[in-house]
C-alpha cells in the first residue's frame, strides 16, 4: 500500500473511485465528510466542533489525521498527534484521540488501516509508544484496540466531578 504522505508523481487531491477504498491524510475539504460521519455515529450535527478540532490537529501536525474514503465519501477517520510531557511522559508519545468508522463499512479492516497509517506517522515523528483512552462502557472500541495489539496500560485514569 502506498503511503499517502509521500507525494511522488501521483495525485495531490485524491478522490476514491467507486468501490475503491482510499486511506489518506485528512484535508480541509473533509470537514463535511467528518461532520456527517460523526452525525451518523450519533454525535449530532456539530460543524463548529469539527471545524475547531480539525483546525487544532491541522495546525499542529497536519500529516497525522487520516480519513478513509470510499464511494466518494468519508467512511472513517482517526485523529491524533505526538506529544511530549503529557502526564509526566517525557518521551514523545503518539495519542489516538478520536476514531470513527461508518457502521455500513465496519468489519472491512478500515479501522485497522487507519491505525496503521497513523502509527507509521507517529513512528516517523519519533514516538516509541502510542496511547489512547477508552471508556469502560465502550467494549467495541476496547476490542478493536486489543485486536490491534494494544494492552491495558499502567497509567490509570482518575477523575473528580467538579
Amino acid at each position: 500500500m502506498a503511503s499517502p504522505r509521500q507525494f511522488r508523481c501521483g495525485r495531490i487531491h485524491e478522490t476514491s473511485m467507486s468501490g475503491e477504498l482510499k486511506i489518506r491524510v485528512l484535508e480541509d475539504t473533509d470537514l463535511n465528510g467528518v461532520t456527517q460521519l460523526d452525525e451518523k455515529l450519533g454525535g449530532g450535527y456539530r460543524p463548529e466542533v469539527w471545524e475547531h478540532r480539525i483546525t487544532y490537529y491541522q495546525r499542529r501536525d497536519p500529516e497525522a489525521p487520516v480519513v478513509a474514503e470510499a464511494d466518494g465519501k468519508v467512511v472513517g477517520f482517526m485523529l491524533g498527534e505526538v506529544r511530549s510531557g503529557e502526564f509526566g511522559l517525557e518521551e514523545p508519545t503518539g495519542w489516538i484521540e478520536v476514531i470513527g468508522v461508518d457502521p455500513d463499512y465496519r468489519g472491512q479492516a478500515i479501522g485497522r488501516q487507519l491505525a496503521e497509517h497513523i502509527l507509521e506517522h507517529f513512528r516517523e515523528r519519533g514516538a516509541s509508544t502510542v496511547r489512547t483512552l477508552v471508556d469502560e462502557d465502550s467494549e467495541g472500541i476496547a476490542g478493536f484496540f486489543s485486536a490491534l495489539g494494544f494492552e491495558p496500560s499502567t497509567l490509570r485514569p482518575f477523575a473528580l466531578k467538579l
Partner: peptide, 8 residues
Amino acid sequence: REEAFHLL
C-alpha cells in the same frame, strides 16, 4: 505542513 492551516 504550515499550508494546511492556511487553507483552514
